Amino acid sequence: MMDITAVQGDITTQQVDAVVNAANNAMRGGGGVDGAIHRAGGPAVLEDCVRRFPDGLPTGEAGWTTAGDLPARWVIHVVGPNHAAGQRDRSLLLSCYTRAIEVADELGARSVAFPLVSAGIYGWPKDDAIAAALEALRAADTAGTAVTEARIVAYDAATYDLVRAALERP
């Protein structure tokens, strides 16, 4: 059974098996969560991205790299849809979480920290980003994932409060 929790803080400091990175298609670092993970993880993360994903990743997909200097063992990179650029297919957002859990299962990761994929600079409406995360994680739990802990990490208090409130609803 997966325990889904809300955490306020910095995803790069989470003591979990894997952290999920909201990456861009190129997989070469960027802003927001992606930039923070690359900075904290050090050059090993980028080197592994270049080696493992020479052509990047399509939207809705996931892949893993070393976590470099992060406390986690792996980084699971997902590419969310860019709502601000007109990518509004919600199934691609759901796929990010589903594929991340599948990759976690392949790696043997039992604890995973997630950001709210696409809810930053990509402009996905925060309430729906939270709903999509919970929908996909709960479906993965029902489907029998071996992940036992999923943390949704909110950087700011307002987002944390929204995630916590959504978790309290049935």
Rank of each mutant, 00 (worst) to 15 (best):
D17E: 11
D17N: 14
A18S: 06
V19D: 10
V20W: 01
V20N: 08
A22T: 04
A22V: 03
A22R: 05
A23R: 01
A23F: 06
N24T: 13
N24S: 13
N24L: 07
A26E: 12
A26V: 05
R28Q: 12
G29F: 15
G30S: 06
G30R: 00
G30H: 12
G32M: 10
G32K: 04
G32L: 04
V33F: 04
D34F: 02
D34V: 05
G35E: 13
A36T: 03
H38A: 06
R39D: 00
R39S: 05
G41E: 05
G41I: 02
G41K: 09
P43H: 07
P43Y: 07
A44S: 05
A44W: 00
L46D: 12
C49S: 13
C49L: 11
C49A: 05
V50E: 11
V50Y: 12
R51P: 03
R51M: 04
R52E: 09
R52S: 15
G56Y: 07
G56Q: 14
P58T: 03
T59Q: 13
T59M: 03
A62N: 12
G63R: 09
W64M: 09
T65F: 06
T66H: 10
A67W: 08
G68A: 11
G68D: 15
D69T: 10
D69V: 02
D69Q: 15
D69W: 04
L70N: 01
P71G: 15
P71Y: 11
P71H: 11
A72H: 09
A72V: 14
R73P: 01
I76K: 12
V78C: 01
V78K: 02
V79F: 12
V79E: 07
V79C: 12
G80A: 13
N82W: 00
N82L: 05
A84M: 13
A84V: 07
A84H: 08
A85P: 10
G86E: 10
Q87V: 02
D89Q: 14
R90W: 04
S91Q: 11
L92A: 15
L92Y: 03
L92Q: 15
L93V: 07
L93M: 12
L93S: 10
L93F: 01
L93D: 01
L94C: 06
L94M: 01
S95W: 07
C96W: 04
Y97F: 11
T98K: 08
